[in-house]
């Protein structure tokens, strides 16, 4: 099998998946920045995901991807 993807980015995936289940906030309906706090949390999660993926692309790029 070609390619050598590192496995550590899967930890980022697990971290984001864990953060996805924000059960401690589910019952709250107060507003943060004008939107419900749960919605604001998940928008933040998307942005955090982009940050972690930037790290994956920077430090976890398979060496032989373009061979």
């Amino acid at each position: 099998m070609p390619g050598s993807h590192p496995r550590w980015p899967l930890l980022f995936l697990l971290l984001l998946a864990g953060g996805f289940e924000n059960f401690w906030l589910w019952g709250e309906d107060w507003l943060l920045l004008g939107i419900p706090v749960n919605l604001a949390y998940h928008v933040g999660l998307c942005l955090a995901g982009a940050g972690l993926l930037a790290a994956v692309v920077r430090w976890g790029w398979p060496d032989d991807a373009d061979d």
């Binding site: 993807h5 980015p9 899967l10 995936l13 919605l39 998307c46 993926l53």
Partner: peptide, 18 residues
Amino acid sequence: FALMGSSTAIIVPFLFYY
């Protein structure tokens, strides 16, 4: 938004990557 939006935002890029 969480059910379909942020779940897609989290999972799909990893599918692209792997």
